[in-house]
Design a protein around this nucleic acid. Structure first.
Lengths: 233, 233
DNA sequence: CTGACTGTTTGACCAAGATCAAAAGCGCGC
DNA sequence: GCGCGCTTTTGATCTTGGTCAAACAGTCAG
């Protein structure tokens, strides 16, 4: 158990999840947790396991995925600084998703029992947890509708617009992670992702390796028919 | 606003959401709410609207759906007694889904502001809300993986098994609602649902109108390859 | 009972995306 | 720089599920 100075990471304390809680309580949580470094491509946990730790990705890139019969599908790509698998920890139920690092990553591991105990005592933490779960739920609603009523090129278009929005509406950016992972996230094969980029070229999107440039945001938005209800975060 | 004696409905007080809260607080919530009867096919609210009420379906059948460009898709069929759209109410964000009654329904409408106010004061309610949201999140994770890595007949098979499980593993039951709605819930067209029932006939499923009979549960389960992690509720 | 309306089923065909195979491109170690 | 291994792309083909059209079944009003 490689302990590290957690106090050095103020971004953890500034997370929406921990931000509003009592200082002493936060200290209690953080001092009971530990920060660990993982190499790329390492499985952090698997679907079906008991949820022993709340994870907070401090640095790196993590993939949440489900491996069914034969094929896998990635459910989410976690970027720092974000907590993940809150729901399993909260309910003390087995993980529904597996997690692996995509790049070398630093993860804060908060023991699930500790988390549940402190949540019961600290109302602000409970409220933040509730809020986080509600936003997570809404994310999933969006993802499911996206999957159910958009076709592949539209899903890609929307993803690019959202990704761009996350980086301050940059019209030129680098995709994080491999394209095969992106394909799986968007519910298509890598071959099809490639072709989808092809059809977006006609809507003013140019791709060179991981570098994507949105030449004509309006055209892309018209093609993507984005969600009328704006994203929550 | 047709008020009704809410005290007559103890199943509301017994809901997981309200069960553990302070009695006086519960009384406050319920007396500030009202029970209303809606005819079939009535829209209760639409995606994009401000979330004014937490809804609790007391009686009847409600469909949560999203209407995108051209097509619709149903996200959930709500059976009594269940609360719905908790996440929108909690976060005070616009609804992500629309709702309509499928049959004549009685719905308890809890003003969202009241709900949020009482949640802040009553820790047990907050905890129950948190738990409910976590379970809802997990439901959506399941639905999304189902959509992403199972094909249509498998989705139907799984749905039938789960539906059967909900009714105490009955091997013979009635589908609730129309088949077109079920098709939409499962992410396929009515035509395809019909064909999917056809392929399940070979796995020992017989259908007559809304009546479904599972002749060989083992064969159906083998075909469906159900989720290794058991359902939460 | 009959006819109109609606929902379901069946069949023929079409389109989106998956699969298979092979060629490029790219990164990395030697 | 060169070659190996892996990802990405391109092309050809196949499968799944969607679309369109028509037959069929069930319900309800008259």
């Amino acid at each position: 158990m490689s302990l590290m100075r957690i106090g050095e990471k103020p971004e953890i304390a500034r997370l929406p999840l921990f931000r509003d809680m009592d200082d002493a309580m936060r200290e209690r949580v953080l001092s009971g947790s530990f920060l660990q470094v993982f190499p790329p491509q390492l499985t952090l946990f698997e679907r079906g396991q008991q949820a022993d730790f709340l994870h907070v990705l401090v640095d790196g890139l993590v993939e949440l995925y489900v491996s069914g019969t034969g094929r896998d599908t990635t459910m989410k790509i976690v970027e720092p600084v974000t907590s993940f698998i809150l729901a399993a920890v909260m309910t003390d139920l087995p993980y529904l998703m597996s997690a692996r690092t995509l790049t070398s990553s630093r993860v804060l591991l908060v023991p699930a029992a500790l988390m549940r105990e402190v949540i019961r005592k600290d109302t602000a933490l409970m409220q933040a947890t509730m809020h986080e779960l509600a936003l997570g739920y809404r994310d999933m609603v969006r993802a499911l509708t996206d999957m159910k009523l958009r076709q592949s090129a539209e899903r890609l278009a929307n993803h690019l617009l959202e990704f761009s929005a996350q980086r301050g509406n940059a019209w030129d950016f680098e995709l994080s992670g491999e394209k095969r992972v992106l394909a799986s996230l968007l519910g298509m094969t890598p071959e099809n992702l490639s072709r989808a980029f092809g059809t977006l070229k006609e809507q003013g999107v140019s791709v060179n390796g991981a570098r994507v440039r949105i030449e004509d945001r309006a055209a892309l938005a018209a093609f993507a028919r984005p969600d009328p209800v704006p994203a929550d975060r």
